[in-house]
Amino acid sequence: MFKRILAAAVPALMLVTAAACAEQSVGEANPGASAVAYPSKTLQIMAPAGAGGGWDLTARSMQKALQEANLLNGQSAEVRNVTGAAGTIGLAELVTSHAKDAHQLMVTGLVMVGGVVTNKAQVDLTKTTPIATLTAEAEVIVVRNDSKYTSLKQLVDDVKANPTSVKWGGGSAGGTDQILVGLLAKAAGADTKTVAKQYVAYSGGGETKAALLSGDVSVAVSGVSEFADLVKAGTVRALAVSGASKQDAGNGTPAPTIKDAGYAVELMNWRGIVAAPGISDAERKAVIAMIDKLHTSAQWKQTLTDKKWDDFYKSGDEAKAFFESETTRIKTVLTEIGLG
């Protein structure tokens, strides 16, 4: 018991000093938000997936950085996992059971936007209170080093001529990887539906790698980090990355983007944070202010470096607009490839 008291007392003492400064700076930067002292109780951060996955790591990293950067107004933060159906179980819980509770946050991401569509979930991301996007990872399109394709254009030309000749491998059906294949086929003017049918879903990066190496699939799509080591070893060749700018896919030289190859596709596998619906405007501003401060904190910057996450920050109205545009875009492409 003594240890408990001690454990609670030390941060509290530290925060007595920190809180005063923090409140001042809020007052200066954002006069509307200072009306709400936030958080005023334990902050709940939901990771809508199992422990150890990307969303869970994001949630736990946020919890840690928020605590270490003293952004919790003397309160603590708790991470809880609600698993299931690409995060849509957690999403439904946030919207139905925790509405109007400003202390309920949830990690989200592109995968959830897709999951809402493929699982025909009742509740979508626009029902929540958007707060911010935090990180993102580009996708990479790779072939084996003995493949005849040396550029994305050659590959896409073949796909356009004969859609069934190229078999794609990647993560789960309707996930980021298949979405990218659909967007690419659409942008290139290929038969989107047939191309998407040539996509073979694997249960994770490991299985996808094995399928590419064994020759089951001719092209693999995955996050850049997943294939970095094989690209570096020269076992596989990166044809393109899906971000806005060229990016090193592992071998030290920047790989071209899909746009460089002439197809107007840009797709980032982003992660972000939303709050429960129905919270007041002042509360919303307070949450955004807290995440804004988290984003600029040294602790969060360190987290990004440690985890090799790319910064992808949009907050407030910008995040709201982004969530909406992604929801529309993903819904369209998934419907087109027959997964809507």
């Binding site: 299931g84 159906a85 849509t88 699982n119 789960s172 059906a173 073979v200 997964l339």
Partner: peptide, 20 residues
């Protein structure tokens, strides 16, 4: 749960919790 290749739900009886 969801069929891994097509994303189609099987024997979930309308319960999203069974999708995985």
């Amino acid at each position: 749960g969801i069929d891994s290749l097509t994303g189609q739900a099987r024997f979930t009886f309308g319960m999203p919790e069974l999708l995985d």
